[in-house]
Simulated scan of single mutants.
Amino acid sequence: MNKIEKVSKLIGKYFTLAIVFWVVFNYFLPKTSEWVIPNVAYLLGIILFGMGLTLKLQDFERIAKRPFPVIAGTCAHYLIMPTIAWVLCLVFQLKGATAAGVILVGSCPSGTSSSVMAYLAGGDVALDVSIETLSTLLAPVALPGLLLLFAGKYVDIPTFSLFLSTIKIVLVPILLGLLVHHLFKDKIEWVTKFLPVVSQLAILLIIGAVISANHADLMTTQTLLVIPVVILHNLSGYGLGYLFSKLIRLRTPQRKAITFEVGMQDSSLGATLAMKYFVPAAAIPSTIFSIWHNISGSILAVNWKNRSTNDDAAKMEKKGKTAVD
């Protein structure tokens, strides 16, 4: 078991590098992940079932006890990210499936890696997990509705089919995981140690499938234009998420949590739905987002952590001088 935990931590530490390597590998050998393409939805189901296994009834009690920051953070996520995506599509004059893909990833619930970033940054992890849970549970309604509102001019939106698929792909695995955890509790504790590795491998396989399906179109002007759009989308989400949490006067740890919850997306869900309901090119923004938000999130988390450490050291030094005086 210790070996599994060590492997999990090792993969987690170098996960961004693993993503970049896997993207390059699949670009030069696209047939590697062709078999994954029809199985993408199952892989996402595995990831979300794992998320359900880690949830407890106390997580929902926490939402009921402290509803304001959770609801405020979830609303901020679903208001800020889709709107930014739509504005960027207008500014960069994106069209068709590419524009729909940018708006799709912007309409997804919060990313699962946001809680890791909040933990590393010294943020309110409990709040982060609560927002992540609520935004994911709302996804079957929020995601099709936001796509219809913002992306309807670019592609036809199969709203009801998206609603049903999101329930099947997102809610069912999570609720099954929650039920299994509730019924078996401590008996499955050992399983949760495998979950980070399983989820990370599933994400890599989904990314490989997107690269394989879009191999011929990856170096087009429209696709390359997505890179700065995704970077601006993510960074704007961080900035506006932090500003929003500051305006409603939340504490610093809560601001950090909401910053990551707003700026980081469930890009695996975006890629899965894009592959299922639109052309493969619509999954490219989600794939680029998956790479970039792991990089930017890690940098921001470490920066915040270092700043907190330096501030604490300065306070201790000042306290020591005061005591001497």
Rank of each mutant, 00 (worst) to 15 (best):
M1T: 13
N2V: 08
K3E: 09
K9Y: 06
K9W: 09
I11E: 02
I11N: 02
K13I: 13
L17F: 14
V20M: 12
F25A: 14
Y27T: 10
F28A: 08
L29R: 13
K31Q: 10
S33E: 01
N39M: 11
V40A: 07
Y42G: 15
L43T: 04
L44G: 09
L48T: 02
D59Q: 12
E61P: 03
I63R: 07
A72H: 13
Y78M: 10
L79D: 05
P82W: 02
I84Q: 06
L88F: 10
C89G: 08
C89L: 07
A97M: 11
I103P: 04
V105Q: 01
V105A: 05
V105N: 02
Y119K: 09
G123K: 01
G123L: 04
L127T: 02
L127Y: 01
S130H: 02
S130R: 03
S130E: 04
I131E: 08
E132I: 10
L138K: 06
L138T: 08
P140L: 03
G145Q: 06
L149E: 03
F150V: 05
G152Q: 12
D156H: 05
I157P: 00
P158M: 02
T159C: 00
L171K: 01
L179T: 14
V180R: 03
H181K: 14
H181V: 04
H182K: 14
L183E: 12
F184P: 08
D186E: 15
K187R: 14
I188Y: 12
E189K: 14
E189Q: 13
W190K: 14
W190M: 11
K193Y: 11
F194D: 06
V197H: 11
S199N: 14
L201C: 13
I207C: 05
I207A: 09
G208T: 05
A209H: 02
A209P: 03
A213N: 04
H215Q: 14
T220E: 07
T221K: 15
Q222A: 15
P228Y: 11
N234A: 06
G237K: 08
Y238D: 09
L240H: 08
G241Q: 02
L247R: 15
P253W: 09
F260Q: 05
D266N: 15
S268V: 02
A282I: 00
A283M: 01
P285A: 04
S290I: 00
I295S: 08
S296N: 03
A301F: 05
V302F: 13
V302K: 14
R307D: 15
R307L: 15
D311V: 09
K321M: 11
T322H: 13
V324M: 15
